[in-house]
Design a protein around this nucleic acid. Structure first.
Lengths: 198, 198
DNA sequence: TCGGTTACTTGACATCGTGTCAATTGACTT
DNA sequence: AAGTCAATTGACACGATGTCAAGTAACCGA
């Protein structure tokens, strides 16, 4: 439970997460995380061998906290392909804001660290599997537009749902979360579904 | 002409560009650029006050070389809204591969340098104007889907045409350039156009 | 031909963040 | 009393950016 005194490792992960949500990624240094965790900078290296490893661990920590699997349940139990598509976009749209900080950090880290790149890629491939499943369900229902192969449709849905697009629409364009969800469903239907009734 | 001996500043810009196209962004250091330009590292600072400024100057240099304005001519002279949309996507799709290196560099630099961020944002806003113009032409032709406001339609087209999406589709998904162009036009029509024939 | 300017060189150095190492402390076991 | 474990302190190497000072070589105009 969170009311118990967390062990040092958990304190570090919590601090990292809090800082990433509060500030610009690059301004979250090992020293800052240590200070906020109430330990020395060197002690961080007793728990994580590098900054990259700490960020990767934080990613897993976030997914644990928010119970990704439970969130995706409605999309897996959907009856029709359309329902599944909508449910998947919906859950993802609710999940994205929660991983914002760590996602940005991991993307930036990916430029210099191949393990970070692999970790982020792994999460994105997991998300892609969900896209592939939704597309497959559409295909099964004969609702997939003949304009695209199954592969292409998956690529397209994956692209639409990318973290960068979410960032651009909600941050740069100022779309509220509800608009993001609604519009993304519209777009996915317009592109992928044969009879795009909304 | 390029057969004349270029001045030092131009040599630097050419070297920067060549290196950014050949290698990972972060591995292009001031020292590398200097070596390739045949001058000392310190001499770089006689021409550009920082790495960020050099990258920004390189961006302008690339746009000069490839004559962006001329490229966009067909989209500006298009008769119908649909023609304009297609022409704009087409030119952008041809232009993107050429700015790949410097674009990635500027995006990475944006994390740490606010001037670089402003420079990239400026280019993206310019691209957005083109999107707005295409959407307006569709609206004029009564071909804009009533699902979206003009503003939203612009946001959507802007998102679809983003550098990150191009990267994801051509690199991660392995789409050939021709497929990228064709599919992007399809997607834009499906989402934005009222009678999405095509 | 002298003097000045311009472009560039060399070498040393400050700064910042990551990551490492060695010696030490303090608490809890057995 | 001895041992172990988590953490501390302080020093330090490394790599990259950016700065500074002194020197050089070519060119240009009076």
């Amino acid at each position: 439970m969170s009311s118990e005194a967390p062990c040092t490792r958990d304190k570090i992960l919590q601090s990292t997460l809090a800082l990433l949500e509060a500030r610009e990624v690059q301004s979250v240094r090992m020293g800052d995380i240590a200070k906020r965790s109430g330990i020395s900078r060197q002690a961080l290296y007793l728990h994580f061998k590098s900054r990259a490893e700490l960020l990767i661990a934080t990613t897993r920590y976030v997914e644990d906290i928010h119970d990704v699997d439970a969130r995706l349940l409605p999309s897996r139990t959907a009856r029709t392909g359309l329902e599944r598509l909508d449910a998947y976009i919906e859950s993802w749209g609710e999940f994205l804001p929660k991983i914002q900080g760590i996602a940005k950090a991991l993307i930036v880290m990916s430029e210099t660290d191949s393990e970070a790149a692999a970790a982020w890629d792994d999460r994105m491939q997991a998300m892609r599997s969900g896209c592939a499943a939704a597309v497959k369900a559409l295909k099964r229902d004969k609702q997939l537009s003949p304009q695209h192969t199954v592969e292409q449709a998956t690529d397209i849905l994956w692209m639409l749902m990318s973290f960068q697009n979410w960032q651009q629409l909600t941050q740069a364009c100022g779309w509220p979360p509800a608009t993001y969800g609604k519009k993304l469903k519209q777009m996915a239907r317009s592109i992928l579904v044969v009879d795009a009734g909304g």
